[in-house]
Design a protein around this nucleic acid. Structure first.
Lengths: 341, 341
DNA sequence: TTGAAAGCGTTACCAT
DNA sequence: ATGGTAACGCTTTCAA
């Protein structure tokens, strides 16, 4: 590996000139600049990362903590890590992956040893131990997800409330007035970050504001059939369903509706709001306002880089607007034919 | 952040004593050793990663390249990255993730700038451009997967041949003599690394050696029904199936068999060989000799660390023996009842 | 526009 | 058993 000194010698200039010529941090005569660049190219020179990091006090690395605990979908999870990595590269940062047990301890380690310039926190729980840690370290940190208490934290998430309002608006525009939300199971509500709760609240509030008949179903299990059973018992004649639940429920919903003699969108219109599609071949087969990692991760990385480079004012919580994806599962409300059993 | 000098001052010793006391690289009186450790603890001292890396010429980081191209399952893929990361931590290494476009260029970048001490190559294709690169750089590199030409490379993979032989042995022990392999589609054969081909070859060879009636099906699509159609046309009365194909085929196989009036294991015994189960809730519902990332990744990391630390002789290709997982889908061959349609 | 040299915080060699 | 210090390869300040 060639060093900066080799380049300097080859180009017949001083070390500092090489450094400046390559970094562009001060003006260099175009002549010597080319000589330096040529020498660097022929020697295959690349600055040694550790030397540069020590001198510049910057590693150009972001740490990504992803605990991956039991009730999160590892598939969706790694999608976030991927998107962060991709976004980071566009800003010339690499990413260090901290998983499992090491998610918390690694975050400490990284901060203490200045391994990374900043930290991205994934899979944020309502009461996340990494929140306290983030407040105690000086290393810039951005959460993708919103914990209960955001004091002193920088967070990025989808604007779930907006996704709910847009879902309801779409149903209303199509003429639906009896609608329902299929939310997460109660267990999930307890463990996950607080967005499922925020979603349910906003659904109730906004449906009422628009004068709709609306119910919320927190299914007892991941069985779509059970959820529908409850839904149509509580509110027969429902023609619009907003989905913000486990992927397992969503994937079997169409079949479960068919079992009741209901077709999508002939009898029932369906929209998925704030769900993360499984990474495999097929996206959810519904109109959707998804929590897409490709939406939130680049924003989070931008903010983090801003924090690191000291340019951006650190706003507390940034909510990214969802994007409506149409797949033809919302249609005009039909004349109520054969009430659901 | 406290530096080694702060610790030295607090403990009343020289910085070299601190360094040695903490690294244990030379004998220190237990008295001063404790004083140093106390000072380090109270000051929350941790060596600055970049300084240590520069001086010791070692970053304690492994780079992981994972291109994630179209026809690989991203789910399975990230499972490998995860397992590498976990294995690396047990050896005190962190992992840097290089994905997509950056998988190749990042590998260069990493090697040129000494970002990482070693490189793990994932998702290895038969003709992988990273093979050539690996030969040209001095950074220790280990492939998880085997490219066509392994000259000068260090590779780790499942012993697929053994998984096939064990599958056949299990079927023979249960009394099956008419067996079939459902392999990958021809498209996949062309693109992926060469293990699907090696599997088909070994299946043919070993089945013949054991005197069995055997056919190999390369399904035209990912439809399990199509595969079975061909299978039973080519060899009616087949009672043992070895599966080494796309997860999509495997997941729907039981249903497709049921459509033909065949139950597992009553009429047909099934074993999956060398397949990587999807990361989601359910593993494949068959007896299996899976390509489990938890099997190969730790081995690869161990070898890589050995290469880095210069202890281990670098054997070219290491094949990890598969582990048989029983799920009750292999049973005694019944008297041939009602030939399959 | 350029060069010299002082750090950056470790490790490890050479002394004692 | 311990201390002094060169070296690691770069960035950046200070001088010219």
């Amino acid at each position: 590996m060639a060093t900066i000194e080799d380049v300097a010698r080859a180009a017949g200039v001083s070390i500092s000139t090489v450094s400046y010529a390559l970094s562009g941090k001060r003006s260099i005569s175009s002549d010597t600049k080319r000589r330096v660049e040529d020498a660097a190219a022929t020697l295959h020179y690349a600055p040694r990362a550790s030397a540069r990091a020590l001198a510049a006090n910057r590693t150009e690395i972001l740490a990504v903590t992803a605990p991956l605990h039991a009730d999160t979908d590892p598939t969706a999870h790694m999608a976030f890590a991927m998107e962060v990595t991709i976004a980071a590269r566009t800003r010339d940062y690499d990413t260090l992956l901290l998983v499992q047990d090491d998610a918390l301890s690694g975050m400490k380690r990284s901060a203490n040893s200045a391994l990374a310039d900043g930290i991205i926190v994934l899979d944020v729980a309502a009461h996340d131990e990494r929140a306290k840690l983030a407040r105690s370290i000086s290393c810039p940190t951005v959460f993708i997800g919103v914990p209960e208490n955001t004091d002193g934290l920088v967070c990025v998430d989808l604007d779930f409330e907006s996704s709910i309002r847009q879902s309801i608006d779409a149903l209303v525009e199509a003429g639906h007035t009896r609608i329902a939300l299929i939310g997460h199971t109660r267990e999930t509500l307890a463990r996950e970050s607080n967005y499922p709760l925020r979603i349910q609240r906003e659904f109730a509030r906004y449906a009422a504001a628009r004068g709709l008949d609306a119910v919320i179903v927190s299914p007892p299990s991941d069985e779509a059939a059970d959820a529908l059973e409850i839904l149509f018992r509580e509110q027969p004649g429902t023609t619009g369903i907003v989905l913000s639940t486990a992927n397992a429920v969503a994937l079997l919903l169409t079949a479960a509706l068919a079992d009741r003699g209901l077709a999508v969108p002939r009898d029932v219109s369906v929209i998925a709001a704030g769900m993360t599609p499984v990474l495999s071949r097929t996206p959810l087969p519904f109109d959707a306002l998804p929590l897409d990692p490709a939406l939130t991760c680049p924003v989070a990385v931008d903010i983090l880089v801003g924090l690191i480079e000291g340019t951006r004012p650190s706003s507390a919580v940034t909510l990214v607007p969802p994007v409506y994806q149409s797949r033809g599962t919302v249609a005009s409300a039909a004349v109520p034919s054969g009430q659901a059993r």
